[in-house]
Amino acid sequence: MTGKDVARLEEAGAGIPPGTRINITFLAGEDTATRLTAARAVKRLGFVPVPHISARRLPSRSALEEFLAGLAADGTGDNVFVVGGDPARPEGPYPDALAVLRTGLLRRHGVRHVGITGYPEGHPGIAGPDLWSALTDKAAAIGADRFDGDVITQFGFDAEPVLDWLETLRARGVRLPVRVGVPGPAGVRRLLGYATRFGVGTSASVARKYGFSLTNLMGTTGPDRFLHALARDYDPARHGTVKVHFYTFGGLRATAEWINRFRQRDTSAAPAG
């Protein structure tokens, strides 16, 4: 959710299981008060707030301290998700997520669980070797500071590269649980727009495998086939602990309703862990 989605979360809340982790984005144009209000709403409704910290959007160390102190005061700062963020140039002293992790401020303000990013299909602005170095360095920093942690991946439409990436991740010694990014049900045009923005592969063969056509952009699609493929080929010995993380491109309520219908139809498609 974004900081402005409190009303939408309240509308969708009855369909979301208590204790669900709800990520709260760190967008340009939303101030600290808006983000703190959203985190309080998530907690009030019986869910676990996971506020994002966007390293390159932080103008100063004091801005980071202010945000963390506000979360701690509200009891909403146990879990955070630290990401580099969209700006090509940092707006302050933090060029990437690792720089935030190394400040020591997370532990000082009571953070216990830290999420970091993973990119199974690569990143449009970061070379593959650099992505792997960044991920392993962040995982090491989480372990050194004795945080609990996990990796949330960018969403995708093809389970095969996700599973290959998971196997490589484990071979590189990263044992953190992974939450595989799954696009919730949404219009095809909207999904393709997000895919283009984030560098996600959308070839015709991948689109067909996922369940939509690049020549028919007017429909709506859900991740049924993706989840079935992920569950079918998932091997805990090779892939480690895996869960899913839904990107609510089609809206919080629509995603929650889709998940509930999917669970009723086929409980076998949720990865173990």
Rank of each mutant, 00 (worst) to 15 (best):
A171P: 01
D96C: 10
V50M: 14
G240Q: 03
A99G: 11
A159W: 06
V83K: 05
H123Q: 04
T103F: 09
D164R: 09
I53D: 03
E121V: 11
I259L: 03
A171F: 09
G13P: 00
G125K: 12
L106T: 02
Y194S: 03
P161L: 00
H239Q: 10
L176Q: 06
R208K: 08
D130I: 15
T32I: 15
R35H: 06
P93Y: 13
T267A: 13
D235Y: 13
K4A: 15
V151F: 00
V100Q: 03
A12Y: 06
T241S: 07
K243E: 07
A159R: 11
G156V: 09
G29M: 01
A69M: 08
G118M: 02
T25H: 13
R225C: 08
H113A: 09
D5M: 13
P18G: 02
L64F: 01
G29Q: 01
T255S: 05
P51N: 02
G92L: 13
A186F: 10
A144D: 11
E167I: 02
D266W: 15
T34D: 10
L176G: 13
A159K: 05
V206S: 14
G70A: 01
S62H: 11
G85A: 06
R175P: 06
R89C: 14
P177N: 01
L36T: 13
R102P: 07
P183R: 00
E167K: 09
A99D: 12
F212I: 02
P183I: 00
A72E: 05
S205T: 14
V82I: 11
D148R: 08
G250H: 01
F47P: 12
P18K: 12
T32S: 13
L192V: 09
L166I: 02
L64M: 02
R208D: 14
E30M: 08
G222W: 14
H245G: 07
N260T: 13
R197Q: 15
T20W: 14
E65H: 09
P161H: 01
R172S: 06
H52A: 12
L58W: 04
A99T: 15
F212Y: 09
Y194A: 02
